Simulated scan of single mutants.
Amino acid sequence: MKNLILFIGVLFCSQLGYSQVFSNNDLSITQLEKGIWVVETSDNTTMYIIEGDKKAMLIDVGTKCKDLDKVVKKITDKPLEVVLTHFHPDHAGNIAYFDTVYMHEGDTALIRMLKIPYNGEIEYVLDGDEIDLGNRKIEVIHTPGHTPGSIVLLDTKTSSCFTGDAFGSGQVWLQLEPHSSIDTYIRSCKIMLAKMNSEGITKIYCGHYPYVKTAFDKSYLTDMQNLAEGLKNGTAPEARPYEVKVSIGSQNPMIATLGQASIVFDPEHLK
């Protein structure tokens, strides 16, 4: 059965023009376009590799992938910058394989809360920073909501952005601690949509690619903003209880859906 599932996945990717370049028991790596690879793990976490002329970037590090540093070297031998979109374990769990990681300082509270073992250096990026990979500059956009330090990484060379969980993978979680207000999230949606318009970004590569197997477009962000505004002003479609419970979030979350977008939220922390 496992081999059949793998075959179907490879066939699906080949039909889309994608090319799987590596796999093991922990993960598979597929080239999405020139200089961009998606790393999909056995527990549905996601990383991306971007390669420039001089350096490469690993976006997020997944949870439990053995020898991740060596695996990345099978794709690129260029010096590697490791950037976390936020500090949840499914995006930061493998940081021990790397001497230095970059993230936004807004998530320092999560470093203390989650206590992921790490003896390396954590460097902080700011909104508007650019990381030069050589003929390819990746811009940092601060988009708080899912976490206080969530960031999006813009690659104008391919009209792409890499959003982690800032806008979810079909649904975004806003019920987690530390909580952000719905106003904060609405501002992040507006910032992201403005950047997509001004920088010609057409592809949104989300933080859990195995669930969607494609890039979202701007209409997804528009649905997210409209839903968030509806939750704020009371015009959103009726919410229902959300059954998934997590240790650092509300124990009575609700979920509302509009178009392509769903938001999981704590009714007591919407304001």
Rank of each mutant, 00 (worst) to 15 (best):
K271P: 04
K78W: 02
D99Q: 13
K232R: 15
T100A: 00
I111K: 13
A96W: 07
N119M: 13
E123T: 08
L6S: 05
F265Q: 02
V244P: 03
S28F: 08
E139R: 15
I191R: 15
M224S: 11
V82Y: 04
S19W: 02
I95S: 06
K70Y: 09
I29H: 03
I95R: 12
A166Q: 03
D43Y: 06
L270M: 15
Q31D: 00
V101N: 11
H104T: 04
L154Q: 10
Y211D: 01
S28I: 08
M224V: 12
L4K: 13
N135Q: 14
S180V: 07
S219G: 08
L110W: 08
K78R: 12
H88K: 14
L270D: 02
L133C: 09
Y124R: 06
S188P: 10
G93A: 02
G168D: 00
F216G: 01
S150R: 04
F265G: 01
G249M: 10
H86I: 03
G249T: 11
K213T: 02
A96Y: 14
C65M: 13
A92C: 01
S262G: 00
G35M: 08
Y185E: 07
Q20N: 01
S19L: 07
K213C: 09
G134A: 05
V212F: 03
S181T: 15
Y48G: 11
N226V: 02
Y209H: 13
G134M: 08
D53F: 06
L114W: 13
L84E: 08
L176V: 09
V82N: 02
M254L: 15
E81Q: 10
S247P: 01
I50N: 05
A92R: 00
G93D: 05
S188H: 07
S23D: 12
L110K: 10
T202F: 03
C206N: 14
L174H: 02
V212P: 01
Q175P: 01
